[in-house]
Amino acid sequence: MNEIEDSRRNWMSVLAQAPAEELVELAEPFLAGAGFTTVRAPQIGLAQVRARMGGTGSRFNLGDVTITRCVVQSAAGHYGHAYIRGRNKPHALRAAQLDALLQEKALRGGIEQQVVAPLRRMQEQKQRQRADETAATRVNFFTLVRGED
């Protein structure tokens, strides 16, 4: 996998998992002046979720999850894709637009720094908080000898 694809996977994932409100707000300065052609307007559908028997064995279908997908093309000709969990069309549209702009070398640094990085930090902080809450419930049981032998 090449380097661009690797970092693209990374930013797509951060944008998909960001809280919609923060994403829209942070993206605004970069998207305001940019022109895009809509290739596939935000569209809500399902993705089937697969799991494995015993966690490691053969696959089975667990159920579906709602997703929203969107494709746009930037003025420079880059195609931006977005796939997000849930049903938030403005979120999917902004994420697709940012994905297109992030593929332009001149813009990447700024967007990475002012949109992607803060969103990534927010996600990491949320994960840390949940991990800390969980850690406080770590338990160490003692077994007691019961009566006779």
């Binding site: 569209q43 809500i44 559908g45 399902l46 993705a47 089937q48 979720v49 697969r50 799991a51 494995r52 966690g55 490691t56 696959r59 667990l62 579906d64 999850v65 709602t66 997703i67 997908r69 796939y83």
Partner: peptide, 14 residues
């Protein structure tokens, strides 16, 4: 009422 666009990779509960 929804179409299924994709099938996910198997989730990794490990």
């Amino acid at each position: 009422t929804l179409s299924r666009f994709y099938v996910s990779e198997a989730i990794d509960t490990g």
